[in-house]
């Protein structure tokens, strides 16, 4: 493909590749939550949730802010638009390919007519 994967895109895709992280994102897509709120429904330890959240933060899909002694997490959808843009680029490449083949074959036909 014409556009190599960027590190950011890799981070986004790695973050999306795990079911627990997707569940955390689904939860955060409904509204902000504390880390402690997230650990409970997934039946996993606070440490484990923290690791998942770090990967989501590295992908910039989640941001945190401190309120008192608690961290509040928030979903940021922007990196997903980069995934969308990448797929759109693949599509543009194949469309450009078909157009270029068409142009080439038409040029061949015109060459024959001139002869």
């Amino acid at each position: 493909m014409p556009v190599p994967r960027t590190e950011n895109l890799d981070h986004t895709l790695i973050a999306l590749a795990d079911p627990t992280r997707r569940a955390i994102l689904r939860r955060l897509a409904r509204g902000e939550a504390r880390i402690t709120d997230l650990a409970e429904p997934f039946d996993i330890s606070f440490n484990s949730v923290s690791k998942h959240i770090k990967l989501l933060e590295r992908a910039e899909l989640v941001t945190r802010r401190k309120v008192g002694r608690e961290y509040i997490l928030r979903f940021k959808p922007k990196p997903l638009t980069e995934v969308q843009a990448w797929i759109a680029k693949q599509q543009a490449f194949w469309a450009a390919s078909l157009k270029a083949i068409d142009d080439m074959l038409r040029a061949e036909d015109e060459g024959k007519v001139r002869k």
Binding site: D10, L13, I14, L16, A17, P19, R22, L25, R26, A29, F75, P77, L80, T81, V83, Q84, W86, I87, A88, Q90
Partner: peptide, 24 residues
């Protein structure tokens, strides 16, 4: 296209994924 990464990605949890679907 992203088989090795997103083969199990579920849809419907954000408008953005919905937008990708609509575009395709």
């Amino acid at each position: 296209i992203f088989a090795s990464y997103v083969e199990k990605v579920e849809m419907g949890w954000s408008n953005m994924l919905g937008a990708i679907d609509a575009m395709l």
